[in-house]
Design a protein around this nucleic acid. Structure first.
Lengths: 120, 120
DNA sequence: CAGGATCCATTATGATACTG
DNA sequence: CAGTATCATAATGGATCCTG
């Protein structure tokens, strides 16, 4: 932000910056499943089937696809233990912890919002 | 959480609660446009066309649809001033401010994430 | 200006089955 | 168990035209 005589010139407004940030975040966290999966995994590493149970309502196809994306964004690691039958575990990365603030904020808000809705 | 002999019975884990909250929040904020629109409106009331310019990339069809949903969730009010041509302004409600924490958290995270990505 | 209507292409999500 | 394959529907996106 630069002042010039009496005019204020916004080279980049606070709003633009937060817009860019939010868009970047939404780009990575898109869809209705990414955060729920991460939350489910925050209880500890989990196998595919167990994860599917924890994240209620998700189909294997979607879970598989979302896990791949989460892996690419380095939120999740996939461990394969070659046995019969094979055992696969998904685990959160250290970096996934950086999402804690977002998750906390959303969880709090959702909780309040539900109370608000129900009181009517 | 209730202890019973040696077993621990989770009536509702912290994870379940945050999962429910996040799902409620995602339900209301779904899609890639809701938050960007709210951020754009945080600069002040705006007319349809101006809003479309601020929220880069959105088509009138989508903007119209999203605004209706935002209205229903009481984040936005629509003011109509009967003139020729008619003037319509969209404005944030007081309640929309409750989303500030979420927006802030996402904006911060997006900013950090971008830096992280670019440094590689 | 503020949108709605239409047509079409691409994604996203979902239900069900099936394989190694 | 850990997914993939198939099919169907819904949501979203883009272009263009239209109306009060």
């Amino acid at each position: 932000m630069v002042k010039q005589k009496d005019k204020v010139i916004h080279t980049k407004s606070a709003c633009d910056r937060s817009l860019a940030g939010v868009r970047d975040a939404l780009y990575v966290l898109n869809g209705k499943w990414k955060l729920p999966i991460i939350i489910a995994l925050s209880e500890g590493p989990s196998r595919f089937k167990d994860l599917q149970r924890r994240v209620e309502g998700i189909t294997p196809k979607l879970l598989s696809k979302e896990l791949k994306e989460l892996e690419q964004n380095e939120f999740v690691v996939r461990h394969v233990y070659p046995q019969t039958p094979v055992l696969v575990e998904y685990e959160l990365t250290e970096y996934s912890r950086s999402l804690d603030d977002i998750i906390q904020a959303m969880a709090d808000w959702g909780f309040q919002h539900r109370a608000r809705i129900q009181s009517r």
